[in-house]
């Protein structure tokens, strides 16, 4: 009788441990999918360590997953790709002449167009952080950054109206540029 009770206790203990391991594996498999990137393990045991595993699994499964758009253009070896962007720049208030205002606004617009080309070709890094205290959003921060090298971009058209300069730029990408 004593042995039977002991056996039952052992079975129940092993059953409990098996449930916990399943929850952990669920979390590990879901995390890389939400990032939509190959899992690097950068955030492992840092951000989610203090949180409940079951809670993470639920939140992650509810988040919308970004799917690649079928109509998104892909650079192929056979044909080049033309990218067109429009950059905007503003003239400063304290300029000595309209010509100077135009020149400065155009410089800013060209830089904006370069940034847009870099964003389209290389992509943007986005970091977000929300601080919530007593169930209220105290601070919401979104940081984006781009780093790229752009060459052979051409200015197609420049317009200047009411202090705003718009520069239309285009760049032709070929497969050989990335080899």
């Amino acid at each position: 009788m004593k042995y039977n009770v002991l056996l039952v206790a052992l079975f129940s203990a092993s059953a409990l441990f098996s449930v916990e391991t399943i929850q952990e594996t669920q979390v590990e498999t879901i995390q890389p999918i939400t990032a939509d990137q190959p899992y690097t393990g950068e955030y492992e045991n840092t951000q989610y360590a203090a949180l409940d595993h079951q809670h993470i699994a639920q939140t992650v499964s509810e988040a919308p997953r970004a799917q690649p758009q079928p109509s998104e253009p892909v650079l192929s070896q056979r044909e080049d790709m033309l990218i067109t962007v429009t950059g905007q720049g503003v003239a400063p208030m304290n300029t000595s002449s309209p010509a100077q205002a135009y020149a400065l606004a155009k410089r800013a617009a060209v830089a904006d167009a370069y940034r847009m080309i870099a964003e389209k070709v290389k992509g943007v890094r986005i970091d977000g952080q929300d601080l919530i205290k007593n169930m209220m959003v105290k601070r919401s921060t979104v940081r984006t950054s781009v780093r790229a090298m752009v060459r052979n971009a051409n200015v197609v058209e420049t317009t200047f109206k009411e202090g705003l300069c718009e520069v239309e730029m285009e760049i032709t990408l070929s497969h050989a540029d990335f080899q």
Partner: peptide, 15 residues
Amino acid sequence: HKLGLSVEHTEATVN
């Protein structure tokens, strides 16, 4: 510009 320039852009949106 035609020779090629390095672009570095940072943007922060706080509240």
